[in-house]
Computed example of a mutant assay.
Amino acid sequence: MRGLTIVVAGPDPDRFRAALTMACAAAALGGRTRVYLHEQAVTLLTATGSAPAGLPDLAELRAVASDSGVELIACQTGLALAGVSATRADVAAGGMIDLLATLSDDRLVTL
C-alpha cells in the first residue's frame, strides 16, 4: 500500500481530528502514515478538544495514532513561534522541505 502524508494547515481541532482518524485508518491498512502540523497547527499538540459522545478526545486520538505507528511531525518554525516543545516521545520536529523530500510515492492530503 502507498503511504499517506497529511498536512494540517491550521489550528482547527476538527481538521486535526479528521487527519488523525484518516491516518489511523491508513496505518491499519499497512501503509506508512505521517501527519505534519504546519505553523499555527502545532498549537494542536496541547489541545485536548471535546469529542462527540462515544468518541476519543484529541489527546486520546493522538495516543491511538501513536500506538498505530502514525508519525506526528511538528513544523520547527511553528514550534518556535508558539513556544511549544516537541520533546514529547510521539512528536518529531521537522520542516516542509524535508517532508516533501521524503514524500516518495506517498499520497499527499492537506486539511
Rank of each mutant, 00 (worst) to 15 (best):
G78R: 09
A86R: 01
T77I: 14
A26R: 07
G30K: 11
D105M: 03
L20V: 04
E60Y: 01
L81D: 15
D90R: 05
A51L: 06
L45W: 05
L45R: 01
A74K: 01
L20R: 03
P52C: 10
R88I: 10
A25V: 14
A74S: 09
T46R: 13
L81G: 10
A27H: 04
L103H: 03
A74H: 00
T87F: 12
C24V: 14
D67E: 01
A93E: 09
R34S: 07
V7I: 12
P56R: 01
L111G: 06
A92D: 05
S104C: 08
L37K: 01
A26I: 00
A53S: 09
V91S: 00
G94D: 05
L111H: 10
T77P: 09
A47N: 08
P52A: 14
M22H: 12
V84G: 08
A41L: 09
L81I: 14
D57I: 03
L99I: 06
A82W: 07
D106E: 13
T21F: 07
A65V: 08
D90G: 01
V109S: 00
A51S: 12
T102L: 10
A65E: 03
L58M: 13
G3N: 07
C75S: 04
T77D: 13
F16L: 12
Q40P: 15
E60I: 04
D57N: 13
D67R: 08
S85M: 10
A41H: 10
S104E: 14
A23D: 06
A74V: 09
G95C: 09
R62H: 11
L55D: 12
L72V: 01
G78M: 04
A89Q: 15
Y36D: 03
P52S: 15
L58C: 08
D14K: 12
T87C: 12
D57A: 03
L4Y: 02
L79D: 06
L29A: 15
V8T: 11
R88F: 12
M22C: 11
V8C: 07
T102P: 04
L103Y: 01
L108W: 00
T48S: 12
L44H: 04
E60T: 11
A63Q: 13
D90Q: 08
A93L: 02
A28F: 08
R32W: 05
D105W: 00
V91E: 10
Q40W: 11
D12T: 08
E60H: 07
I6Y: 01
T43I: 13
T5H: 05
P13K: 06
V109M: 07
A27F: 00
G31Q: 02
D57F: 05
L103F: 02
H38Y: 13
E60A: 13
R62G: 11
L79W: 02
G83P: 07
D90I: 04
D98G: 15
R15I: 06
Q76R: 15
V7Y: 05
L61A: 07
D14T: 12
G95L: 12
V64I: 11
A65I: 03
A41C: 04
A80R: 15
A23I: 00
G69C: 02
A18N: 13
L81V: 15
G78Q: 01
L72S: 04
T87Q: 15
M96H: 08
L55P: 02
I97H: 15
L45N: 03
D98E: 15
Q40Y: 12
S66K: 02
